[in-house]
Every structure is written in C-alpha cells, then in structure tokens.
Design a protein around this nucleic acid. Structure first.
Length: 220
DNA sequence: TAGTAGAAAGGCAACGGTCC
DNA sequence: GGACCGTTGCCTTTCTACTA
C-alpha cells in the first residue's frame, strides 16, 4: 500500500465521520487573513470575539486597519489573547499588504512560491500562518500543517516525533493531488479529529481513525 | 460547586554550544 | 571571533480538567 492510498484512506475515514467542514468561516479573504494571525495559539472561539469587535467598529477592512492606531487595535482584539503581540503582528501584515499590494486581489495573482516567501518575511508570520492565508484566503493549493496534523500522524506512527513542518507538508503535497479543495477539506477534518479525538489524552477507542496503521514503521 | 493549574491551532528573541 | 543551529523563555487570555 503506498503513501497516497494511505493518506486518502485517512481522509475518507474522517470525511465519513464529520462530513464537509466548509472552512474557513469568514465573509471575505481579508477576514481570513486577519483570523489566521489572531488564531495563533488561541482557540477559534476567542478569535471570533475579536473579529466581532473589529466588525462592530467597522474596521475589518485593509484601509481601516492600516489607519487604525495600534493601541486601539490591541484593545479590540483583546479577547483573542496575546493582544499586544498580535496587534504588532497584525499591523506588520496589514502594512505589508497595503503598501505592497493595496488589496487582496492583487496579492492573489502572485505565484505561490514567491508569495509564500514574501509572507514569511513579514515579522509575526510563520509557516502555518502563511500557508493558512495562501490556502484559505487566496485559494492557493498548499497544505497547512498544524499541531493537530503532527499529533495525529505521530500517534498513528506515520512520522517521527521530530519531523519538521516542511517534511510533513511535503508528505501531503507529494502524495495527494494538488487540489485546493482537497487540501482545504483535509486540513479542516484533521482539526476536527484533533480537537475531538486525538487530544493530548487521545480517545482512540471512539476515534474515526481507529485502526489506521502506517504502511511501514515510519512513512517519514 | 468553586477554585486552581495547566494547556492551547505560534512566533520571536536571547542564549549557549559547536564548528570553521 | 563570527556564523549557524538548537533550546528555552516569554507573550496573554480563555477554557477545561482536576481537586477539595
């Protein structure tokens, strides 16, 4: 059994259990980008509160956030935690987007590899945040790796504990069809599985991935 | 039931060790 | 001595699990 078959088997098991997830929950690509930064090390529930605050003040758009005072921004995103730090990171990203591209349509036309490097140069944007923006906001076919992905693959013996972000991403991108919709749905299903079953104390007995075994000791 | 400790979907900066 | 790499602490709020 090859890696592609195994990864698709894993996808099927999760999809049958959860069904389509319709990710990312946002009204605009810009909202996705803001959410991707706010959700760093924070549960989505808290991010939603911060997003509501920004919407309530009618500043959840590029121009308004560019003009908004950083201290005021910090107060609005307070429910998302790390608010001073995230205000700085959000400002860095908004400045990058406004000054270099002016809007989300222009940035979407950039080639994937170039754009990813540009995003990673923005202080406060790491691989997971950059890939979330690329996939969910800009519709680029890139696989998002997060802590849940790593935990699930480790628990099932697909990867070693010390496997890095790029290694794990390559595993998916080299063995699955490079389709935005597939990567989108796959990541969303992993998040659901990680949140509900593959926790720090895993609920293996009732997990949709129960019985899933790697094709060899380690895929990576 | 109330209080408390620890974890949580990340990334940065500082520090120490190693190598050239 | 400088470059590079890995490790560790820190940021801050909320929620959950555990304990009394």
């Amino acid at each position: 059994m090859n890696k592609k078959v195994k990864l698709l088997e894993m996808y099927d098991k999760m999809y049958k259990h959860f069904g389509p997830r319709h990710w990312w929950p946002a009204d605009t690509p810009f909202e996705v980008m803001v959410g991707a930064i706010l959700t760093q090390n924070t549960s989505w529930k808290n991010v939603e509160k911060a997003i509501r605050n920004l919407k309530g003040k009618k500043v959840l758009n590029l121009k308004s956030l560019y003009k908004l005072n950083i201290n005021r921004l910090a107060l609005l995103i307070r429910p998302a935690g790390f608010y001073n730090l995230k205000a700085k990171r959000l400002k860095n990203f908004v400045n990058f987007l406004f000054l270099r591209y002016n809007n989300t349509k222009s940035i979407a036309r950039r080639p994937l590899a170039l754009l990813r490097n540009e995003l990673l140069e923005v202080k406060g944007v790491g691989p997971e945040t950059a890939d979330s923006i690329l996939l969910y906001a800009l519709g680029k076919p890139v696989f998002v790796v997060d802590a849940y992905t790593k935990r699930i693959l480790t628990n099932h013996g697909f990867i070693k504990k010390d496997a890095g972000y790029d290694e794990i991403q390559k595993l998916f991108m080299d063995n699955l069809p490079r389709k935005r919709q597939l990567f989108n749905e796959y990541h969303a299903l992993i998040v659901e599985t990680g949140k509900n079953f593959c926790r720090k104390k895993p609920l293996c007995g009732i997990c949709p991935l129960k019985g899933l075994r790697p094709w060899e000791k380690y895929i990576l």
